[in-house]
Nucleic acid binder design. Structure first.
Length: 204
DNA sequence: CGACCGATCGTCT
DNA sequence: GACGATCGGTCGA
């Protein structure tokens, strides 16, 4: 299991890159699922126009982002999808990393059942909405510590070289104006579970 | 393959 | 009352 120090790293870009290749584990109602993180996005605090905490915006929803790193921030997007974020940085520095895609490692049948997919193709955990659906994550787990055993992140001997990490602008943040251009999206090159249109994945 | 569109609801103004 | 850090289906080239 990754330790607190991993999450309180003040360089959120590094955390977003370091999360690639790590294993996201959920234990929901006795069901264990594990999946390798293959795509992330960094949301960097009160100066980042794409971040929900931009301009020091503290609301009931964003409050958890102001916590010390190592908890989850989960919210409902477009009224139908839960999106899972790792809160990073230290207290009152509301940074987070969105997990946009994972690759199933364990509990594939459980994921298939949860998502209602008829075939086990790469769409099962492609895209942030599908990630939470497959892993059984809802906003019931909002604020959960990643140092407990319901949701946590671990690592194995998977090695990722910096050459295999691609960066592009973030997806779906057009409203963030110039900050929409920041290269804060990271993914593993050539991984089939990575989300977005193909053209998005050749931007860099 | 790309463009478009509807579904759906908590949160904030 | 408006708006999303989305997804999957459909339509047309």
């Amino acid at each position: 299991m990754l330790t607190q120090a991993f999450y309180t790293n003040k360089n959120t870009i590094d955390v977003a890159k370091n999360l690639l290749g790590k294993i996201l584990v959920t234990k929901m109602e006795g069901l264990v699922t594990k999946a390798r993180i293959v795509e992330t996005e960094a949301y960097c605090g009160i100066t980042d126009k794409a971040c929900h905490a931009y301009n020091n915006k503290r609301t009931k929803r964003t409050e958890i982002m102001f916590a010390n790193g190592g908890v989850c921030y989960i919210y409902l997007c477009y009224g139908m999808h839960y999106l899972f974020n790792v809160v990073t940085n230290t207290i009152n520095n509301p940074h987070a990393v969105l997990v946009r895609a994972v690759e199933p490692l364990e509990g594939l049948e459980i994921m298939q059942k949860r998502t209602g997919k008829k075939e086990n193709d790469f769409t099962i955990t492609k895209g942030p909405g599908n990630v939470t659906k497959a892993l059984g994550i809802t906003n019931n787990q909002n604020g959960y510590s990643l140092l407990q055993n319901t949701i946590y992140i671990e690592e194995d001997d998977f090695i990722l070289s910096s050459k295999q990490i691609i960066n592009t602008p973030r997806i779906g943040v057009h409203y963030a104006k110039e900050d929409a251009l920041l290269l804060y999206r990271f993914f593993i090159k050539n991984n089939l579970f990575v989300s977005g249109k193909k053209i998005d994945n050749f931007a860099n």
